[in-house]
Amino acid sequence: MRRAGDIDLVPAGQEGGFETETPFDTIEIALQPALMERVAAELGGKARALPLDTRHLLRDQRIQHLARALESDVNANSPSGPLFADSIGAALAVRLLGLDNLDVDRRNRLSDAQLKRVLEHIEAGLHEPLSILRLSRVAGASSSHLRAWFKAATGFTLHRYVLRRRVERARVLLRRGDLSTSEVAELTGFAHQSHLAHWMRREIGQTPRDLRRSQPK
């Protein structure tokens, strides 16, 4: 009766599971109660009063997409770092709480000073892991609000903006020609050369090798 993509939701403290007659593969994601409570508190309103019940055989394309993205990163030894995992976890929490379709209060936004602080902090920390909690403290806003307001202000999610800035920094360093590709990857916050090459190809259509070959002799 089960198909690829079926989802079981099992709240903390409740028993789940089922019997099968044939082997199967599954992805199990555990969201900490503290994460659910934080997201609910940040978004407020119905979220705090909405109980989660055990449900089986759910179908939800967004949850599937988020789960596959997290699985791919874990299988690659989590090269995207804590900001990516934080973002996926929070997005799953929002989806499960049923709040993803609520309108953001358009009167609220990052002030120029808040946005400047966040952008400067990202620029100074491109070489190290950046988390949504760390950036929300810099902004002086909740992590849920920061995600929505940052995208409204820049047109990019936080995760994608950080990746684009890391790629740009890497391109500048590679063009200098005095550092190895592994050194550039480390200085720009990528887990390894392959991680850097993957995102350079996606963002600018060139790998580090392509970029070096295009440089004048």
Rank of each mutant, 00 (worst) to 15 (best):
E28M: 12
T20E: 14
I7L: 04
R2T: 06
T22G: 08
T26D: 12
Q32M: 10
E15V: 11
R2S: 03
T22D: 13
P23V: 11
F24Y: 12
A30G: 13
Q14S: 09
T26R: 15
P11V: 06
Q32A: 14
F18Y: 11
I27M: 03
E28P: 01
D6P: 02
F18N: 04
D8S: 05
P11Y: 08
G17P: 02
D8T: 06
E21T: 10
F18S: 09
E28N: 13
R3L: 10
G16K: 06
F18L: 07
P23S: 10
F24W: 05
R2G: 03
I27E: 06
V10G: 00
A12D: 08
A12R: 02
R2V: 07
T22Q: 14
Q14Y: 05
G17K: 03
G16H: 09
G13K: 00
E19A: 15
Q32I: 03
A4W: 00
D8I: 04
L9Q: 01
P23W: 09
R2A: 08
E19T: 15
A12N: 03
G5Y: 01
E21S: 13
Q32T: 11
I7G: 00
A30M: 05
E21G: 15
G16I: 12
A30D: 03
G16W: 06
Q32D: 15
E21K: 09
E19R: 14
P11M: 02
V10A: 04
V10T: 11
D25E: 15
F18W: 05
R2K: 09
D8K: 00
P23C: 03
T22M: 09
V10D: 02
I27G: 04
F18K: 09
R3N: 10
A4K: 14
E19F: 14
P23G: 10
F24V: 01
D8F: 10
A12G: 07
A12C: 03
F24D: 02
D6N: 06
I27K: 04
P23L: 07
E28D: 14
L9S: 05
I29W: 04
G16D: 09
A12F: 10
G16E: 07
D6H: 02
P23T: 11
F18R: 11
D8Y: 13
T20S: 15
